[in-house]
Amino acid sequence: MHIALEIAVSAFLVIAGVFGLVGSFGLIKLRDTMQRLHAPTKATTLGVGGVLIASMVYHWADGGQITFHELLITLFLFLTAPVSANFIAKAYLAQNVAEKDLPEPLTEHGWAIYNDPPLIEEAKEALDEGRA
């Protein structure tokens, strides 16, 4: 393998390892659950992205053909990390924060974590009217 590619793979691996460790160390170090949400969702995602780039370069230099499996995994992780972080934040809010402590919602419907979605609410009302 060419020395420049070897240096590139090693650099990506070391950077990825440091990012992954920082992400999980932040999960221990930070004080509050909402603060703890920051470290793993950003740093760990970046760390695993670095590992996947290193793997892509290594297999390209080793076998001669470039593969896109790694890009698929990277894309999937980068798409799902914000979604799962949002869900975890909502679960924390629903369990630990009362509705009166949150700011007023701007639309006519309330916070989604305390109220049913509008369509389900209407369906329930229609069901009650049908029974009565």
Binding site: V9, L13, A16, G20, G23, S24, L27, T33, R36, L37, P40, T44, T45, G47, V48, V51, L52, A54, S55, Y58, H59, E70, I73, L77, A81, S84, I88, A89, A91, Y92, Q95, N96
Partner: peptide, 27 residues
């Protein structure tokens, strides 16, 4: 973890770290 949100977050991070370990093993 004092809260179940902490535990969900830690499990999610564990999955991502396991993926990284698996790719490293492949290299």
């Amino acid at each position: 973890g004092p809260d179940s949100a902490d535990r969900i977050l830690a499990l999610d991070t564990m999955v991502i770290n396991a993926i990284a370990l698996m790719v490293l093993y492949g290299i």
